[in-house]
Amino acid sequence: MYTFIVRRLLLAVFVLFCLSIIVFFAVHMIPGDMVQVMLGPAATKEAIAALRKSFGLNQPLYVQYFLWILNLLQGNLGESLRMGAPVLDAIISRFPVTLELILLAMGLALLIAFPIGIICAVKHNSWFDHLLRPVSVIGLSVPDFWWAVILIIVISTYFPQFYIVEYMGFFDNFAVNLKAILPAAIALGITMSAVIIRFVRSSLIEVLQTDYITTARAKGLSETVTIGKHALRNTSTDVLTIIGLQMGALISGAVLVEVVFGLPGVGRLALDAVRQRDYPMVQGTVLFMASFFIFINLLVDILYGILDPRIRIS
């Protein structure tokens, strides 16, 4: 188990290294120059060159990358060209918002998906199952930012008491915080739950046809124990896989939803940085969210081992 985790960690470092290269060069390929944007169209060539030099942008790209990665290894993501403040500090101060949003969305998605997925699997080919299939296709097809816009319209029109203009921190004002984040989490969670419903359903249908489920029934166990203990435990690794993978969708969805709802999360930070060509900030946010995604999937891998003894003891 420990060698398994160590191997995963080494792999994660390698993935992050490759990612840093992609992110760095991709960011520098975005058309438009930050300095040009900052100084406006009337700026003289000399002024632009001087500012570029002060940011280190006049050096060859590979040198810039090398300097960036050298700082990165020391835990320094550089300074934002726009804010003049360390990138890492900005990310850390914004991350709780994104984390809360993602966790809440995932929690909601699971809360919706598990009961429905289980009913669909146990009563598969029933009217409920047939009804749910087109509904989940709708859930899958409609993007989360559309849900976000619809939710804003609905809430501001029909439930103005729940409409929050100003975001407040989790510990500052919990009620306001929840009112601000919950609609965003719902918008993200709806799409997510549609994916998970399909997974729970198909995985459970498969497990329910296995011999060990017949054994469990032949032992005289109730359907609740047969499904709740013997079947669900075997679907959990499948569902965990999809949760890990869907984290990617949640993170990218969070960028759009944060913008629509005006939440000050990492997603919005990243988008603003792209708009302003704030290279270190874009690199920092992307790398940070990618690390978060890798971390979640590492957690999933470790959980596999806990849930499935065939992985743990081999």
Binding site: T210, D211, Y212, T214, T215, A216, R217, A218, K219, G220, L221, S222, H230, R233, N234, L307, D308, P309, R310
Partner: peptide
């Protein structure tokens, strides 16, 4: 259910698949 496993029991063909892999 009261009869299954107590008065009438079953053994199946495939011992490889008739035990649940995730429980002792």
């Amino acid at each position: 259910r009261g009869i299954r496993g107590s008065n009438i029991s079953m053994i199946f063909q495939e011992p490889m698949t008739s035990l649940n892999p995730v429980f002792t």
